[in-house]
């Protein structure tokens, strides 16, 4: 009676350890992929945040051509699959002699795509700010850009922290497409390790998932923290 559960648990332990070796033996390779995914995410997130906010400013500006250009960009990019954006950047730009490393290309493609998403998140946040706020700012003599920067955007951002978090989370997952375009990040590394360890596919893939979870959950935590700080009443 006593022997049976022990045996089973031993068997289970064997199963787990032998497979996890495929991960533990390759931790340095995993770290390499993790760092690449992190770098892709960070570079693209920062550029998309800056450009997307600028694009949102264009879309709410009083100058019609700027509004049209902003709308055209957002509608074009948002309705194009990310893979096609990658194709365009990685294989079309070199034909007009625009050549960078594949890492830079991947950051560019991710930025182009997520700029449109950031723009829409910020724009909906801007529209959520009472029109009287901008009116009061203009009445004080603030310029359009000062009005946006000092009054509207700070209030818009507290409305868009959560939507921007979703864009960021999508961005982290979308970095995996770079694996198909010359960048060895988490997904590429996982593919490589599953080939090298065909018996431990599940363990390798689970480790990959854990890495993505670490990134997305950290982001979710940061978003929650930011939101709490923004809504906290000073003194």
């Amino acid at each position: 009676m006593a022997g049976r559960p022990e045996q089973r648990s031993e068997h289970r332990a064997d199963y787990g350890w032998s497979h996890i070796d495929a991960v533990l033996d390759n931790l340095d390779i995993f770290r390499e992929g993790f760092v690449q995914t992190l770098r892709l995410s960070l570079f693209a997130a920062v550029s998309a945040l800056i450009l997307g906010t600028g694009l949102a400013a264009m879309r709410v500006s009083p100058v019609p051509p700027l509004r049209w250009a902003g709308t055209a960009y957002v509608e074009t990019v948002r309705n194009t699959p990310l893979t096609i954006v990658f194709f365009f950047v990685v294989f079309v730009l070199p034909q007009v002699d625009i050549v960078f490393s594949y890492f830079t290309f991947a950051v560019m493609a991710l930025t182009i795509y997520h700029t449109a998403l950031v723009c829409e998140a910020v724009r909906s946040g801007v529209n959520g700010v009472d029109a009287g706020q901008a009116e009061a700012a203009r009445a004080l003599g603030l310029t359009f850009s000062q009005t946006l920067r000092l009054v509207v955007l700070p209030q818009a951002f507290r409305n868009v922290v959560q939507p921007l978090g979703s864009v960021g989370s999508a961005l982290i997952r979308n970095t995996s497409i770079a694996a198909a375009f010359g960048v060895q990040e988490l997904t590429g590394i996982s593919q490589r390790l599953t080939t090298a360890n065909p018996g431990d596919v599940v363990a390798v893939l689970l480790a990959g998932i854990v890495c993505y979870l670490v990134l997305t959950l950290s982001l979710a935590w940061a978003v929650g923290l930011t939101e709490r700080r923004l809504t906290r009443t000073p003194r």
């Binding site: 294989f91 050549v99 694996a179």
Partner: peptide, 18 residues
């Protein structure tokens, strides 16, 4: 080493000199 998901992309990159 540069890695893609399909060989046709490798051929394209080779032609482009990348």
């Amino acid at each position: 080493l540069t890695l893609f998901d399909v060989y046709s992309k490798c051929a394209e990159a080779l032609k482009a000199g990348q």
